[in-house]
């Protein structure tokens, strides 16, 4: 079962944080098609948040075809969702660790590294859009 967490300093609305965490869990293979999500009450009980927030997040994911709310049974990851292929991310992660240590060696701190990754992602996206 996945567990959600909220970052109250992020400025991202709580329901959107839950939406993003479900999407991430699916893309990382933590959640697979057919898996059950925690009930509204379970999420509310662990995070002390307004149930409507969870309802809103699940509804949005339901409308997007990612979740499937089955009456009286619970909420499940939709069977139509492309689950993460059984990828082993270990080699990518190992390369990333090496790259991170080079970046630190070059004097970048966490914040600078995040900024560099974010700006590179943006440029790469716009290059792909043009191509």
């Amino acid at each position: 079962m996945v567990q959600f967490h909220l970052d109250s300093t992020s400025g991202v609305p709580a329901y959107l944080q839950i939406v993003q965490q479900v999407r991430q869990a699916i893309s990382l293979g933590v959640l697979r098609p057919g898996d059950q999500l925690p009930t509204i009450k379970e999420v509310v009980g662990s995070l002390a948040i307004n149930p409507n927030t969870v309802v809103k997040a699940y509804r949005e994911l339901d409308l997007a075809g990612i979740l499937d709310a089955r009456r009286g049974q619970g909420t499940f990851v939709s069977d139509d969702v492309e689950g993460s292929p059984d990828h082993d991310y270990a080699p990518l992660r190992a390369e990333l660790v090496k790259w991170l240590s080079r970046a630190r060696g070059a004097g970048l701190d966490d914040e600078a590294i995040r900024a560099l990754v974010a700006s590179t992602l943006r440029t790469e996206l716009s290059v792909r859009a043009v191509a």
């Binding site: 909220l6 709580a14 009980g45 995070l47 002390a48 948040i49 149930p51």
Partner: peptide, 29 residues
């Protein structure tokens, strides 16, 4: 947490007065 579980289970409408702002953002709509 207990209050929000109550809301989730019973669908009760809640009005709470508070001068503690810290928790309100996640609890109130």
């Amino acid at each position: 947490q207990a209050l929000m579980e109550g809301v989730a289970e019973e669908g009760v409408t809640v009005v709470l007065s508070s001068h503690i702002l810290a928790d309100l953002e996640r609890v109130c709509d």
